[in-house]
Write a protein that binds this DNA or RNA. Structure first.
Lengths: 354, 354
DNA sequence: CATTTTTTGATATACGTATATCATTTTGAG
DNA sequence: CTCAAAATGATATACGTATATCAAAAAATG
């Protein structure tokens, strides 16, 4: 009743282990009828190859690299922690993961690291893409060497990587629109704030946002902050003055400091009812803001899940499988104070494994 | 630069493989100074045991059983599919999973299956608990044989199982309350509908719901449907008549048919504005209802994630690890039409694995 | 120093698979 | 029937670890 081995299959099929092996591993030189008998035996016994034993015998291990931007922001910090956690969890499965620091917002710096990976015997590499000819060329060089290249969080041209794991930004924007529409049953005014609509992800979120906004809700012209906190603070202040009935704010991008400043002012003054605020990424100060009720809803792109998904994808590709079409699509999660997941803990170091 | 083996450790420590093994596996009979040298070598080389090879050598495999209620409802159908998917995914890692059908709502039937598991060489068992002396006794018998027992979805007494994997019902209720509060900015009336408040999970959800409801929102007395669709339909109708300004409905339990009937009526008549509807579990007809806009928000307990978590928990317990305190707590997910995850596909059968 | 005890080393087998080699049997063609 | 080609079987080694046994060396005891 134990799990059948290939030897069991061979016996059941009335052939030798060698022949069963030739069939299983498609080595050829086996008579048609023997092939059929072996396949029948596999079917009958429900044989599945013990991949761990196979990898052991093949001396195969999987080497993957993650290139994570070295940025002060909490987001990539969490991402790095998630990679480390997964690295530890999968170390026992012959999966080796390294993290490479990459200068932030620097396509040449990214390209340099990519180029240095070319002779490192990697089976897969995972990066937050920045679009530049040099980066694309480095990716192509890697892929032609048989290295699988995945983009994470930010994509490149879809034909120049093997898969993209990232948030469904349209759905994210729609979700934000839905929340603010819910909050403004009898019409009202809402304010979208983006980093820059030139960024593809922000544009897509904004598009989804407008799609989901109820017909009787007015969307003010989008404010582009260009990641300047002062801009945001100022814009929120002036908008509140002009529209005392402001129902909601959707902060499309990151860089929430200006927003938080303005919101605390509003909270103190009793002049306005604080608008409902929806923003992105449950990390660092955003988590705090949600906890203390400075903001209402956070749309999260689950960095830890992205890492896990990316690893699954690379492993599957390495094993010669093909990925389902929407494998990399991360559905946005919506968190309130009430269903906030616990902050990811950096697990304590353990002694030598026993 | 390859991953070091225990042989490498032994060489580096200047001892034989046998001694290194004695240290690693705590077999005793090793001089203090040798122990230290081996540990130092492990540290220095960053050695980690290849667990797959170790399991292979030990002839160890993990046998787990899931007892899933045989119920018409879509929920346990999805759960069963999730188990099958995980079973396939982990088959290659020496993890064998069997599914046992258990009669629904039948503690004696459950106990019977549990009792039949006693001599099946299981390392872990996972069940949707029903509280009864016979069930508890069967669980105790299993645990005293060294079988880990986890409860899923529904719990027993916390001291009679090794872990509980399930929804944080308080957070779920709070989330529902938050959504309805958002939707009723200037006060209003909301209607909670439960199966029965005698059920611990429903009671907890209701408690959370009240916690999160805004001060200016009126919560009508909870309706207990006792899983009768007619009851629900009738209650919704009469409530709408009595309270034309009904803002929202929170359906705490399952059995949504009566609710859907009443809602379609409301949608057709132009008399009332349809209240905002929040309910549970994105399966089957609920998914359809959300898609077509018959309801607004669904709180999901992610059955597939529960299965994966349960397996991780059992594996960790089998490996002698201890689980973090909140390991089994499933944070509720909130889905709108806009961020609905794709329906779980029953993956197509593949040919014999290569 | 002799003897016992403790510690160490060397070695074999096993797990389930991959891979290779060589001998043997079966098959097909002439 | 003969000979080559194709198919099969038998067997060995390896992967990294677990486990056991026995002999040899080192240390502790008297």
């Amino acid at each position: 009743m134990a799990k059948p081995t290939l030897m069991d299959v061979a016996t059941a099929a009335g052939v030798s282990y060698a022949t069963a092996d030739r069939v299983l591993n498609r080595r050829g030189g086996v008579a048609e009828k023997s092939v059929l008998r072996v396949l029948a035996a596999i079917e009958e016994l429900g044989y599945t190859r013990d991949v761990t034993a196979a990898n052991l015998a093949r001396g195969r291990s999987y080497n993957y690299a993650f290139l994570i931007p070295a940025q002060a922001g909490a987001f990539f910090g969490e991402m790095r922690a998630a990679v480390k956690a997964e690295a530890k969890a999968r170390a026992s499965q012959r999966i080796n993961i390294t993290i490479e620091e990459v200068p932030a917002f620097n396509s040449d710096g990214l390209a340099e690291v990519l180029e240095s990976c070319i002779d490192r015997d990697l089976s897969g590499i995972c990066l937050v893409a920045i679009n530049s000819p040099r980066v694309r060329k480095a990716i192509q060089a890697l892929r032609s060497k048989g290295v699988f290249v995945l983009t994470l969080v930010a994509d490149t041209q879809s034909d120049s990587r093997d898969a993209y794991i990232g948030l469904d930004n349209l759905a994210a924007g729609r979700t934000a629109g839905r929340v603010l529409s819910l909050a403004s049953r009898d019409g009202g005014v809402v304010l979208p704030i983006a980093g820059s609509l030139d960024a593809a992800d922000h544009a897509l979120r904004f598009k989804g946002f407008k799609q989901a906004i109820a017909f009787d809700v007015t969307v003010l012209p989008v404010i582009e902050s260009y990641d300047r906190p002062e801009n945001v603070a100022e814009a929120v202040r002036s908008t509140l003055e002009a529209h005392p009935n402001l129902i909601g704010i959707y902060s499309i991008g990151s860089g929430q400091n200006g927003l938080f400043t303005a919101l605390s002012e509003v909270q103190k003054s009793a002049t306005y009812q604080r608008p409902v605020v929806v923003l992105h990424d449950l990390v660092g100060s955003v988590r705090t803001a949600l906890t203390i009720g400075l903001v209402d809803a956070v749309i999260d792109q689950k960095p830890d899940q992205q890492i896990a998904r990316a690893l699954d994808a690379m492993k599957a590709l390495s094993d010669g499988e093909t990925l389902p079409a929407d494998f990399g699509t991360i559905v946005p999660s919506l968190y309130f104070q009430d269903n906030m997941p616990p902050a990811p803990a950096d697990g304590p170091e353990k002694g030598p494994s026993l």
